[in-house]
């Protein structure tokens, strides 16, 4: 469980996060949604500790990250995995070497055990054997995302962060990635935090949704509660697309 308590963050007087409090639960996919520029990425980077927050607490199962020393942050980071928007695979390494990298740096496994674990993770994300020895530039965007997931989970992290996992993917591939993240989260009982503005994934895997508007938390709930929240700002966001207006009308008609 990650608990945010009154998190404030500003850049040169421009207050981006104006006191966000939220609880991100274990074994569930926690989605952070909101309009472009609302502060989602800043919130996620603050939670991870890439941004120093001005005030507030970020409790990782009770351990407050902002008040930690560098050494402690470093060891907490070994419990984190992160999926970056562009994949952020190391392009001087092959697919296999990318996934092996965290093991080489932080585990005491011998080469054969490492290779076994790499294979395990790569087949968990349904990647074909023929891709293992290719470089990231030689595989498709969707495959890169999957390799990035494999790399993020190779050390069995407790906390998984995904910044817009669907950007640049077609609807079908994003569905596969979404489901994969959801399954893995339940399987390994991780605290997964996903940053997105894709309404399809919100409806598909939104166990716990945090809606951010202009730097404050406007609403929190599950995808079932989303359509009938009664929150005007959230409705503006959710029903911006025609498709979801129709979904709501259809739901009304059925009642």
């Amino acid at each position: 469980m990650i608990e945010l308590v009154d998190v404030h963050k500003s850049f040169d007087g421009n207050e981006v996060l104006k006191g966000v409090s939220a609880v991100l639960e274990e074994g569930k996919t926690n989605l952070i949604i909101g309009q472009s520029g609302s502060g989602k990425t800043v919130l996620m980077k603050s939670v991870i500790g890439l941004h120093r927050i001005d005030s507030g607490k970020i409790l990782y199962d009770g351990r407050d990250l902002p008040s930690m020393r560098f050494k402690q942050v470093k060891s907490l980071r070994r419990e984190m995995g992160m999926l970056f928007q562009g994949g952020a695979l190391f392009d001087f390494m092959t697919v296999e070497q990318n996934v092996e990298f965290p093991l080489t740096m932080f585990s005491n496994l011998i080469k054969i055990e490492r290779e076994r674990r790499v294979r395990e993770c790569l087949s968990r994300v349904n990647l074909k054997e023929s891709c293992f020895r290719l470089h990231p530039s030689e595989i498709s965007g969707g495959m890169q995302k999957r390799v990035a997931i494999a790399r993020a989970i190779v050390l069995n992290p407790r906390y998984l962060f995904c910044d817009e996992p669907n950007s640049g993917l077609d609807p079908y591939s994003s569905l596969i990635i979404d489901r994969l993240i959801h399954e893995i989260t339940e399987e390994y009982k991780m605290v997964t935090v996903i940053n997105t503005h894709d309404m399809n994934s919100v409806m598909e895997i939104g166990d716990n949704i945090v809606f951010i508007n202009k730097g404050t938390k406007e609403w929190q709930g599950s995808s079932q509660q989303l359509l009938d929240s009664g929150n005007a700002l959230l409705d503006d966001f959710v029903f911006a697309s025609d498709l979801f207006k129709k979904v709501k009308q259809a739901a009304r008609l059925q009642q």
Partner: peptide, 17 residues
Amino acid sequence: GTMRITEQIDAMEIMGV
């Protein structure tokens, strides 16, 4: 520089490297 702008350096830092 390329590793920086494609977030590869951030990825390393997050791992604790």
